[in-house]
Structure formats: structure tokens, C-alpha cells
Simulated scan of single mutants.
Amino acid sequence: MNFDLQLQGQRALVTGGTKGLGAAVVKSLQEVGVQVMTTARSAPDRPLEGVTYVQTDLTTAEGVSELARVVREQWGGVDILINSVGGSTAPAGGFAALDDAVWLSELNLNLMSAVRLDRALLPAMLAKRAGVVLHVTSIQRVLPLPESTTAYAAAKGALSTYSKSLSKEVTPKGVRVLRVSPGWIETEASVVFAERMGAEAGTDYEGGKKMVMDWLGGIPVGRPATPQEVADLITFLVSPRAASVSGSEHVIDGGTVPTV
């Protein structure tokens, strides 16, 4: 039996779609017949045929405005908006290592990029009383690692709260708002990080991976998630098959968070 997600012909914008989770989401959506536009600060090494790439910096208001302009000119609007861009470049060293510039950088990337883009593109969705907005948050919002992710975790916590409030406002007007909260995903960047941690400890990638898992308190399934696994969940949630799902946060962390 073919489980049709009923997404054929939909228009989706995925932020940060040239690497890691974003790239997996772009590929998954395209495979089920979605027209996809995505963004990055630099052009992809291996662009997917049929995907529209917009080179812009979403940490700035100007970058978001430029993306919104391209969306309106090429498509008139979107049916699905997936805010997956995010990450952290904060230094280690706890709270004292986080100056105002670091805080603003983490907030602009992980919170304000989504807030600004929603503000630009949601009115068109509301006008037709249809659409889906999905924010990629993080289990860090409930499981912060104080050595290095305080600002990132706080930004993702704010994104989650904002998303819930937005859902209460716009779901009655026809636009669903959702959150997906991943744990550790085995992306290109996380592999490099684990390799570096392993090398510093005199071990290999597998040793470094175990170190990261230990810092998280363990992952009961025994491994990080793959980008494809998270992308599959996102693809289902934005589809008409999940039409009654809105306002909720869907954790995909292999059981990492130890509380309800």
C-alpha cells in the first residue's frame, strides 16, 4: 500500500538547506513532489536539480527581506515554511565567556531568523487561510549544556515559546504551527566535532562520539539520529496526513531527555 503524503505540487521554503538536517529535509520534500526553495550563506557544492537556491544571510533583517522578496517574485508565497537554520559558534567556558556579541549572534541565528521570516511570509498564508509553519527547536531548551550551549539553548527555548504563542494565534485562521525538537543528529558538523573531541582525548571518532553521548547523559537507543530520520518526521508533519496536529513539539532524541 502506497502511503501518499498528499504533498504533490506544494511550495516549500526550507532555511539552511544545503547541509545537515536542512539538506535532508530538502531532499525528502522533493522526493514526494514538493517544489522546494532553500537558503544558505554560500552556494551548495552539489545542488539538487529542480531546487531553487537563494544565497542570503538570515541572521540579518536585510537577508530575510531579500529572501522574502525572492519568494514573492518567483512564487507569490509558500504553502510550507520550515525554519531549520540554526546552530552555535559560542565558545566554551560557561556563562562568563558569553559577551553581548555572542548572545546577539546566537539569538539572531536561532530565534530572530524565524521570527522575521514568519512575519514576512505568514500574511499571505493567512490571506488564503492555509499553510504550515514548522520550527526546528532542540532538546537543549530543556537539557542545556552550561559549558558551551547556554546562549543556544536559551534561544531555542525562546523559539519554542514563540512558536506556541504563534500557533494559538494563527491555527484558528487556517495555518498550522509545529515544532520538531531533535537531540544529537549525526550531521557533517557533529561528526567533525566528535572527531575533534576524540583526537584531543587520544581516541578516534567512535571514542569522541561516546564522549558526546556521555555529556548528554546517554542516548538510550545507543546512537545519534540520522538527518534522514528527522527529515522523515518533518515531512510527515507538514503533510495533510497530519492535518489535526498543531501547536505541539515533537521530540526525536533517541530517549535522551530523561523526564516527561
Score class of each variant (00 low, 15 high):
E195V: 04
T226A: 09
P258E: 00
V132R: 10
T226C: 03
G254N: 04
E249G: 01
P227F: 07
A243F: 10
M211D: 02
E206V: 11
G22V: 12
Q8M: 09
E106W: 11
A201D: 08
V238K: 02
S148N: 15
M125C: 12
E62M: 08
Y152C: 06
E66D: 11
K128P: 03
T149A: 09
R129D: 12
P220M: 03
P220C: 05
R241I: 05
S190W: 12
E249Y: 04
R129H: 14
T59M: 07
S248P: 02
S113R: 02
V70W: 01
W103A: 01
V32D: 00
V230R: 00
G17R: 06
G77K: 09
A114D: 09
T56A: 15
V142G: 00
A114W: 12
G87M: 10
S190Y: 13
A124M: 11
I234K: 01
A189H: 10
A40S: 15
M37L: 13
G94Q: 11
G76I: 10
F236L: 11
F95V: 15
S65R: 08
A201V: 09
G16D: 12
A124Y: 13
V71K: 02
Q140N: 13
G254Y: 00
G86Q: 06
V238A: 11
A158W: 04
T226H: 06
P224H: 06
Q8C: 13
D4F: 05
A61C: 11
V71D: 08
M211I: 15
A61T: 11
E206N: 09
G207Q: 00
P44K: 07
G20T: 14
V170E: 01
G217P: 07
V180A: 04
A127M: 07
A127Y: 12
G9I: 07
V102K: 00
I185T: 04
E195F: 06
G63H: 01
R241F: 04
E49M: 05
V115E: 08
V245S: 13
K209G: 13
